[in-house]
Amino acid sequence: MNLSSFIDVFHSWPSLLNGLAMTVMLTLVSSFLGVVLGTLCAWGSLRGPKALRWFIRGYVEFFRNTPFLGQIFFIFFGLPALGVKLDPVTAALVALTINLTAYACEIIRAGIEATPAGQFEAASSLGLKPAQAFFLVILPPAFQRVWPAMTSQLVIILLASALCSQISVAELSYEANMIASRTFRNFEAYIVVTVIYLGLAVLFREMLTWVGRRFVYGEFATVGQR
């Protein structure tokens, strides 16, 4: 292995770039949807009617205790048997979102449960409706509490998106496979995409820290709060 053997891989930069764009798209869309849906599930699992709570519990436990590859195969190959036919990219987005929602629900629920009951009581005593109290008062500090855990989970989703190559979604690792079989530079191709994943993950983590402060919970002082 020498530098020239990498050059074959870099010659394929347009397909690497396409793969990168697909990976970024899969990650951003499923992250956004997963966090939003996870938040709603967390609310439902804490405050919803009993049937809904049980449904969410079952959903969360199922998707946290089965392999992602199985989930994505089921959605892509299994659902058509039930009459739902999805193209690969949609199936990948659905699988990533459903999987992340289950984890996000648990993470956010933990954050909400750590919120003192007095916060909800104060909001109620001021006349806020339960939904207002939840979204305006309970949620932001809960998010702040669990944002590091959420960030890790979102990075895991970025890395798990590599498995979408198994249903021929042309994302980064799919392109790596293609390059490898075209150039016979297996090792080099995988080293290159691994480094790209590393860079993406570091960047994504930084971005999430910024997004958290800027949009999710604000820059309030973390000291001395009850």
């Binding site: 916060q119 009581e121 104060a122 909001a123 006349g127 009850r226």
Partner: peptide, 29 residues
Amino acid sequence: RREVGMCFQHFNLFPHLTILENLTLAPIW
């Protein structure tokens, strides 16, 4: 609840809102 105000032993201010925002939350919403 709109007619009755309450103060708690542990204040129960909203930690993620400024003092001003703590005060304006209910009037606004």
